[in-house]
Design a protein around this nucleic acid. Sequence first.
DNA 1: CGAGGCCTTGAGGGACCTCAAGTGAAGTGG
DNA 2: CCACTTCACTTGAGGTCCCTCAAGGCCTCG
Lengths: 232, 232
Amino acid sequence: MSSCDTCVVRNRAICSALDSQEIGALNTIGRTRTLAPGESLIWEGDDSVLVANVIDGVLKLSTGTEDGREQIVGMVFPSDFIGRPFGKTTGHGVTALTEARVCVFNRRDFDSFAREHPALEHKLLQRTLGELDRTRRWMLLLGRKSASEKVASFLLEMGERIGGTSCEDSDGPAEILLELPVSRQQIADVLGLTIETVSRQFTRLKAEGVIDLPSRRAVLIRDRFALAAEAG
Amino acid sequence: MSSCDTCVVRNRAICSALDSQEIGALNTIGRTRTLAPGESLIWEGDDSVLVANVIDGVLKLSTGTEDGREQIVGMVFPSDFIGRPFGKTTGHGVTALTEARVCVFNRRDFDSFAREHPALEHKLLQRTLGELDRTRRWMLLLGRKSASEKVASFLLEMGERIGGTSCEDSDGPAEILLELPVSRQQIADVLGLTIETVSRQFTRLKAEGVIDLPSRRAVLIRDRFALAAEAG
DNA sequence: CGAGGCCTTGAGGGACCTCAAGTGAAGTGG
DNA sequence: CCACTTCACTTGAGGTCCCTCAAGGCCTCG
């Protein structure tokens, strides 16, 4: 029996393009792997030797300059795809932020499998187009937004992507409780800021009553609309 | 006879995945269109009604905030693909920087054609993956680089992409003459800077002998290595 | 209880922005 | 052919937002 049969992201990941026989074939070339927080799956500049689906956990995609400055270029969630198929090298590292489980494939094996299964390539194309859209929206934030707009935008985006527990009211949640998978330094690396600036913005938003900070990694969004207004 | 037969990007654009019969079919759903400099093909937030291949010229992809700040999120060159297939809306505008010729398709027609031709979708996937790589590299520039690093990186990237006339020597061109397709303001919008900062960086690089500015739009790269050293 | 991470807070400085004036090239009309 | 306009770019002066450097507070875990 294929382990894909019990996969929790089976119907959301690109695998959803395949029937049960095809899934069986894919299963023979893949294997699951667990990553500890901080552990890397792929390093920047590596030859592209593997690709993967995220089953559980959150990972970051990051690049850096030679002198040590880092920029996080993407965050990856369950059912997302990682790695660079059909290419020689990967331009960014992939590192687990939380404990994570991924379904790993040798890149060449995956490439040939994908070329034989147009429906899979179609799913992958849709995902890649969506990721490109998201990435381009983030460029506006990096290039043109102020620190306060950046932090507000980040909190809203995280609210959308990790969902968090929320108190519903008539039109959407009134308050959203987020358990962030990232440290202050990592938030800074996503937003192109320093850790101190991020911290000061959090403190200010809390003082204004827009958010609350029940613990280090948790954020309670008290006023979603005020946050959206700040996001620009 | 199909006008694709005489197309100058026939062998570089995604169309290269198709045989002559398929090209004929694609030709029946596409038409060429000429754009004047400054003319837009797609507006930010529009429904995704058309996609296109660039035949000739340079176009920008841009988004902006409500209060008028603009960020250029991509530049598009001959043989590149534009638009958002398999999606409802386009997140960024598409505007000609130079006079441009594009091969336009109704998005729904293109979508169904592509779904019937896996080789075409494969080319499109490769292009999209490459564009995503390039976009993510640009995020490092926007988030973490200084004004001088940004301007140097921009000139090098333009050197690679538009090529320009160059004096070859043993290992690559010694001097590269670029005719930029963009104004100072547009360079600022690519780099997340102001026009004044860009201008000051150009002046400084000229004073240091790294570049020369023979006319408004032209840049002569005198010392490619010094520029690369400045790019970070 | 002490050590070591994170995070916060403060003071000061600098890179880039803002506002404003000046320059030069290209076009226009007498 | 030469004023005149126009527009893009350059240059300057001043301000501000964010970074840098440094210290202090608060959890976690030995």
